[in-house]
Design a binder for these strands. Structure first.
Lengths: 210, 210
DNA sequence: CCTGCCGCTGACCAATTGGTCAAACATTCA
DNA sequence: TGAATGTTTGACCAATTGGTCAGCGGCAGG
């Protein structure tokens, strides 16, 4: 998911191995709780070797985070002003849920960063994220005003979509234990549930609503 | 919120001061990322003094967590089988949102623990939490079967309620930055939004639905 | 006023932390 | 093949970590 700079084959491979291991550890323990020894062990490399590829622990963390927010927002960017409002938002929910299913570690890395006060991505949140959200919020408000969507707060709609979809990645242990299931089964159920939830809440108050 | 054992006045006061400081630090950095020095500084006590009241860092964490899950489930326990289904669930959402507003640190402590794999509360989740959720899920299914509630998966309904309400505590930095607001204002908007969301999704398919 | 316990602390400890470095080893390419 | 370049590591370092301990102060009850 992250694409490190690399000049040689070995650099490309090892940078990736390191970032993958770092993602494992950072996403579980957060930046402060992670140790280079843990990352080194999981990467199958020596600690000094990690520091041959990255100048510091923080550099690994920044590398992981910097690419993340961008990828994370792709599903929202894809919200199409030309599409049918309810279906567009439902498709967004599905894309977001798919992100949680495919990239749970990235979701947890992000959650950990926010929980710790977002020290390294506060700027990005206030700039890029806010700008995109404002844009899409205006779009959704337009849909509502045109009667093509229920009259709903677009910001809190997005918060709820983020919360419900990321929940399956961030709290997956709880989800699996409560359901007594394992694997990806919860995601299929979640998709059906969330489709119902948002379809019902977003349906426009048609002139002669059935 | 937590009630430490205490024999003398000083013990009662200092135990509470320590747990309050520990909650600050643990909820932000997680168990591994938290340090006794941080807790000591925030509590205004010396590090050895902390360890006079608690035998170890882990003991503080366990003390905080042990009381937490119980309190955390109170809103769900209060779901009344005798009540009107839709209003009962909406009241549950409001209680849960109120918990996030009043106890955001506790919410984050819990989130951190789950993110790290719930090493200290997995048992509680599989026992107490699962039992309560199963019970209430059966109740909700009954309501649906009786046509008093939409036919909806009760487990994922609860997941979505947890996710959306706790989001305002766990991701509050993001929420505030995106909204460009501060203080409790988001909570009032959230209550209106979530009421609409769940009312729409839970409304039973009445025989002659209006 | 003295005795005894509770509360508190400075000094200390071993283990772990992120990070350095010189030297050894491997690869590439002329 | 050999020199230059790229890769790896053991040994090491200072700082920080969670935790110990002997002793000191202060308050309470006799």
């Amino acid at each position: 998911m992250a694409a490190p700079r690399a000049r040689t084959r070995i650099q490309a491979r090892n940078s990736e191995v390191i970032l993958d291991a770092a993602l494992d550890v950072f996403s579980q323990y957060g930046f402060r709780g992670a140790t280079l020894d843990q990352i080194a062990e999981r990467a199958g490399l020596s600690k000094p070797n990690l520091l041959y590829y990255f100048p510091s622990k923080e550099a690994m963390h920044v590398t992981l985070l910097s690419g993340l927010l961008d990828t994370w927002l792709d599903p929202l960017r894809a919200l199409d002003p030309e599409g049918e409002p309810v279906e567009e938002i439902l498709a967004y929910v599905r894309r977001k849920l798919e992100m949680s299913r495919l990239y749970p570690r990235e979701s947890r890395l992000f959650a950990n960063e926010i929980l710790q006060g977002a020290p390294r991505i506060l700027d990005m949140i206030e700039q890029d994220l806010k700008a995109l959200v404002d844009e899409k919020a205006a779009l959704i408000r337009g849909w509502s005003a045109a009667g093509r969507l229920a009259d709903i707060d677009p910001y809190h709609l997005m918060f709820s979509i983020w919360a419900t979809t990321q929940h399956y990645a961030d709290f997956d242990i709880q989800v699996h234990r409560v359901l007594g299931q394992s694997g990806d089964a919860p995601y299929d159920e979640a998709e059906r549930f969330l489709s119902h939830l948002y379809r019902a809440a977003l349906a426009p108050p048609g002139p002669g609503a059935r």
